[in-house]
């Protein structure tokens, strides 16, 4: 709320000092992202130089030991897992938020919200572990082998559900009360009100929520790594094992050397690009809400 420039405090040395210290810390905090991008690029350069960008998509397979670097199966893996989980989690999350606001009695809404917050705080490795020991054997009974795209989608769904629910909850809370009163005065029933008044009014918040959950789904590593089987292939059914970009990094980073290591940093760059695109999209949407 205050602007530094207009304030003349040159006679107060502690203020000057404080200002410079604060600017220093903020500069550190602000440059971390740049640093991350720079390091990803620097480490990825050997691969981009020796292998070249097209070969990451045209090589016959991913066999880094033989100099083959096809990332496409992993990209598809990430994309399938992400799409599946977002498709399930979005309606579930939005309905959960609707439940909190318009259906549940207050004695139920509050504990339900707390429960969602708790879900948000549970570490991915715990979800992964649970998926591994509970979900995977169940899926194996239906259709072996068990570790599969389906297991990944289900675990991811549970993981990103709190993100969309909390976002949707917040944006439903921001819907002006007079809209609801207006709808009630017209004698609209509950769901009709929600569908035709609440959702349009909360649209941008809901969209931001979807974008955030998508980001989380793309970036998730441990749980996916534990339940997806990690076979490099383009799946032909949801019971096939897959490997995502993130899992690939986590699995191979420990022993990767040279171009192989650099190739993993290339996939890191790809992930980073996706996230930046999503953040920009989210910002664009929320700006639309502010000025539109």
């Amino acid at each position: 709320m205050t602007s530094l420039r207009s304030n003349t405090l040159s006679r107060w040395p502690t203020d000057e000092l404080l200002c410079w210290v604060l600017r220093g810390t903020a500069t550190i905090a602000g440059t971390i992202v740049l640093l991350i991008v720079v390091f990803l690029i620097v480490e990825a350069l050997p691969a981009l130089y020796h292998v070249g960008l097209p070969r990451f998509f045209t090589d016959p397979s991913w066999h880094p030991a033989d100099g083959l670097y096809n990332l496409t199966p992993m990209l598809w893996g990430t994309l399938f897992a992400m799409t599946g989980s977002v498709l399930i989690a979005t309606p579930l999350g939005i309905l959960s938020a609707v439940f909190c606001h318009y259906y549940a009695p207050p004695t139920l809404a509050r504990p339900y919200r707390r429960l969602i917050e708790l879900l948000a705080g549970i570490p991915s490795v715990v979800y992964g572990f649970w998926g591994l020991v509970v979900l995977v054997p169940l899926i194996a009974e239906i259709q072996p082998p068990g570790p599969s795209l389906l297991a990944g989608i289900l675990i991811l769904t549970i993981m990103i559900l709190p993100t969309i629910t909390l976002m949707a909850d917040a944006s439903l809370a921001n819907v002006p009360q007079q809209y609801l009163r207006g709808a009630a005065a017209l004698g609209l029933p509950r769901w009709a009100t929600i569908q035709s008044v609440v959702f349009p009014a909360a649209k941008s918040g809901l969209c931001t929520g979807v974008i955030l959950e998508t980001g989380r789904a793309i970036g998730e590593t441990m749980a996916i790594l534990m339940v997806c089987g990690n076979v490099v292939q383009i799946p032909s059914s949801i019971f096939d094992p897959i490997r995502t970009l993130t899992a690939n990094i986590a699995l191979e980073m420990a022993y990767a050397l040279g171009d192989h290591r650099a190739a993993l940093f290339v996939s890191g760059l790809v992930l980073m690009a996706m996230i930046v695109a999503l953040v920009l999209a989210a910002e664009w949407i929320s700006r639309g809400r502010v000025y539109g």
Binding site: I32, V33, L35, I36, F39, L40, E43, L212, G215, I218, G219, E220, T221, T246, I249, A250, M253, L264, F265, G268, L271, M272, I275, V276, L278, V279, E283
Partner: peptide, 14 residues
């Protein structure tokens, strides 16, 4: 904002 969205595995790489 971007930093908040960076996947943890990318933090690991960095």
């Amino acid at each position: 904002d971007v930093l908040a969205g960076v996947p943890s595995i990318v933090f690991g790489l960095f």
